[in-house]
């Protein structure tokens, strides 16, 4: 049986799909056309990836006139986060993340 969580992990296990989520993170509510721009992927490939992301509920869509807008939906990722990171670890994990970011910025 394929669970919703399986779908999320499968959808995330692909560089192109993670990049599409990154692009929505930077600018939410993009059309297919916008998401295809500056991408070496074909329109069909982008459509296929977006369908998979939508099926995993990582992308939510709304219709605006004739256009379909795509939004990053991080709710399933939050569920995964809450499953393994409890309230008490949150602060420490965040501190380590901040430290790593600060150190990496210095290197650049």
């Amino acid at each position: 049986m394929v669970t919703d969580e399986d779908k999320v992990f499968k959808a995330l296990a692909d560089t192109s799909r993670r990049q599409l989520l990154d692009r929505l993170r930077r600018k939410n509510g993009q059309t297919l056309q916008e998401l295809c721009e500056g991408h070496d992927m074909s329109r069909q490939a982008v459509t296929k990836h977006l369908n998979l992301l939508e099926e995993a509920n990582l992308v939510a869509t709304t219709k605006r006139g004739r256009e379909k807008l795509h939004f990053l939906n991080p709710v399933p990722i939050n569920e995964i986060y809450m499953r393994w990171i409890g309230k008490f670890e949150q602060g420490r994990v965040q501190a380590l993340h901040n430290l790593k970011q600060a150190l990496q910025e210095k290197d650049q």
Binding site: D4, N28, G29, N57, A60, T61, T62, L69, F71, N73, P74, V75, P76
Partner: peptide, 10 residues
Amino acid sequence: KTEFVYVTYI
């Protein structure tokens, strides 16, 4: 302006 759309199945 910007907007966010969230979906969850319960």
